[in-house]
Write a protein that binds this DNA or RNA. Structure first.
Lengths: 130, 130
DNA sequence: CTGTATCCTAATAGATACTG
DNA sequence: CAGTATCTATTAGGATACAG
C-alpha cells in the first residue's frame, strides 16, 4: 500500500544528506554497491579506481551509520565482509535519479562522457521540454 | 512538446553538480532565490542567517558560471543587483525534490525540524510504502 | 549597496605503511 | 582480506576590514 501527502519540508532536511553526498566518493560507492547487490571491500576498492583505502573505509562507515548500507562480516580465513544497500539506501539511489538526469543535460557532461567507467552507468528517463 | 527517452548515463555526470550542491550554502541559496523570484545581495545575506559575505559572493559566482542563476546589475545609486534562477536553475530546484523528500524521512530530520527557518520551507509530495 | 581582500581554522582526501 | 594510522596537500568557509 502506498500513502501520499503534501507536506512542507525545510531545505535544512538536506543538510546532513548533502554533507554525505557531497563527499567525493559517496555516490559512486552507493551506486557500485547497488549495482552489485552485495560486494566486498576489495572489489569496491578496485572498481572505484583511485580511491584510497582510508577514504573508502571512511565513506563506508558513514553510509552504514546513516542506515544506507549494511555490513555483514563472515568468520572465515581470509576474512570476508559483504556490503549491500538497505531498503533506505535503495530509495536514496532512486531519489538521486532526477538530479542525475539534470546533471547529464549540463554542458560539462558531454565533455567527459566518453571517459566514463562503464561500470558506473545508470539507466535514467530523460525528459526535456522543447 | 515533451520528449522522453531511456538513456544510460554515468554517475560521474554528477561530479561537478555535487561539488556545487555539497557546498554548505548552495541549496539554501538556490531555494531562497527561487522563493523570491528576484532578490538582492543584501536580502540573501540577511535571509541566509550566518553566511559570510565572502561565502555568499563565492556561491553566487559559482551558480552563475554554471548557468543556474542570472545576475542583473542596475546603474543606480546606491547600486542594485538582482539575482534570479534561470530556467535551468528552476529545473535543478525541481530535480532535488525527491532527494529532499528522502532526507525528510531520515531520523535526523525530526530532531531539528522545529528550529528551521520558515522562509526555507518547500512543498514536496511525500510517498511511503507500508 | 555590492561586493573583494586578507587571515585563519577545520574538514577532506590522497599516499603509504602497517595490523588483526 | 579488511581495514587503521599517519602524514600531507588542498579546499571550504568564517570573521573582519575595506573598496567602488
Amino acid at each position: 500500500m502506498n500513502e501520499q501527502s503534501n507536506e512542507e519540508v525545510c531545505m535544512c532536511a538536506l543538510d546532513g544528506t548533502m554533507d554525505l553526498l557531497g563527499k567525493k566518493w559517496a555516490l559512486f560507492t552507493i551506486n557500485a554497491i547497488g549495482n552489485h547487490g552485495s560486494v566486498r571491500f576489495k572489489d569496491l576498492y578496485s572498481e572505484l579506481h583511485r580511491i584510497s583505502p582510508s577514504t573508502l573505509s571512511s565513506i563506508l562507515h558513514q553510509l552504514e551509520s546513516r542506515g544506507v548500507v549494511s555490513r555483514e562480516s563472515f568468520a572465515e580465513i581470509p576474512p570476508r565482509v559483504e556490503y549491500r544497500l538497505t531498503q533506505n539506501g535503495i530509495e536514496l539511489r532512486q531519489a538521486i535519479l532526477p538530479l542525475l538526469a539534470w546533471a547529464s543535460r549540463q554542458d560539462d557532461y558531454a565533455r567527459q562522457a566518453e571517459k566514463c567507467d562503464p561500470r558506473q552507468y545508470v539507466k535514467v528517463t530523460l525528459s526535456r521540454d522543447r
